Amino acid sequence: MTPVLADSVRLTDDGVEILDRRVFPAQRVWVRCGGVEDVAKAIEDMVTQSSGPYFAALWGMVLAAREASSLGPEEARAHLERAGARLIDTRRTNNHLRKAVHAVLSHVDGQAGDALVAAALEGARAGDERYRSRSAALGRHTAELLPDKATVLTHCWADLYLVELVRAAADKELAFICTETRPYLQGARLTAETLAEMGADTTVITDGMGAAVLSSGKVDALVTAADRVTMDGHVINKIGTLGLAVAANAFGVPFHAMVQAPDRLAPTAADVPIEYRDGTEILDRPGIRGLYPAFDITPPRFVTTVVTDRGPFDPLLLADYYREVS
């Protein structure tokens, strides 16, 4: 079966519909976005998360093409480039938005009117297929690293990377432990729900329990997705990943970080903007401030393997990923 979150953004005749992950799974509410600015706002407001923003950006660019269909070729291209910049700026730590925008823009070259919309749609469909096929490869390579009947600790990890790993490891009888992942509880709501939909053995723990669980000797691997991996092996992911990676290292548990490809535009961690969200999202009381960095950076010494669509790599040897394909 295909879990709900694996298909949570859809293009319609009059807009883009996005499943509201802020209330899922308690409610299944679809937010309609009539234009590209609505899509951008939905991404910023966390209506969609994990892989969702990638697909939202793909179809948002199609809406931008529809908006520009009455313009001449140069004006239309400029409109799409402005729309792409707006979408990329919504969540700058994850580079998937940049890739989604590029997937559409690379198919648009001097068209106008219906031809422009058709070209944008072709690019979006190609980007959708490419992301899904690379995620399937990523899942297979990660499954090969895990022993039969392994217990896997996860953190804020849902959508296609997770789905494809579970599918690839169907005969291994994996069990999963999911951190809550505060403050949005993505692990308790999104990761755990997706695993349960797929029939996996699933346990939820609070974020503060991670080190204790890793020390128990009952966890075979820490496995997370990565929002971005730099060329020098730093893993950028949901806040809390660093603490789990350090604890895993201390207790001899391997940490496998899943990413389709390391980012050639990010040689070091200093090249990745870390998003800070409004502190009121975690605390809103008079006289007390909240601090909310949405992501943290795990140095390569705490990362066992970076798993890509081309297989596993030592985090210090990621340049080999691109040498192999050149």
Rank of each mutant, 00 (worst) to 15 (best):
A168N: 08
F24G: 01
N237A: 10
Y161P: 09
P315Y: 01
I236L: 14
F55R: 09
Y161D: 04
K149A: 12
T280A: 09
L265R: 12
E81F: 13
H234L: 06
L162Q: 01
L291E: 09
W157Q: 01
G110Y: 09
S50I: 15
G72W: 12
G311S: 00
R98I: 13
E17I: 08
V39I: 10
A100V: 11
S215E: 14
A85Y: 13
A196F: 12
F313S: 00
R66W: 14
L195E: 02
A270S: 11
F24C: 04
A78W: 12
L153M: 12
A175S: 15
G233W: 08
H79Q: 14
A188K: 11
A248I: 09
D309Q: 13
A266T: 11
L116N: 00
C156T: 05
G110M: 09
L116Q: 01
T142N: 01
F295V: 03
L80D: 00
G290Y: 04
E44V: 15
L105H: 04
M198I: 12
R182E: 04
A136Q: 12
T194F: 10
V117R: 00
R91L: 15
R167A: 09
R182T: 03
A261I: 07
K218T: 15
A64Q: 09
N249A: 14
F295Y: 11
D7E: 15
T154V: 08
D271C: 05
V229I: 10
S69H: 12
T203I: 10
L87N: 03
A57R: 10
D227T: 07
D296Q: 03
S133V: 10
D220I: 12
A57W: 13
Y292F: 15
V303Q: 00
L87Q: 05
L138F: 05
G311R: 00
L265F: 11
A76Q: 02
V272H: 01
E37D: 15
L244T: 01
N95V: 14
Q260Y: 09
T268R: 08
T151W: 06
L105V: 11
G217L: 13
D314N: 08
P315R: 02
Q186A: 04
L138D: 00
T48C: 13
A120R: 02
R301V: 12
G187E: 02
A26H: 10
D7Y: 09
G252D: 08
I88D: 03
A64T: 14
D159I: 03
L11F: 06
L97I: 12
R21S: 07
D278G: 06
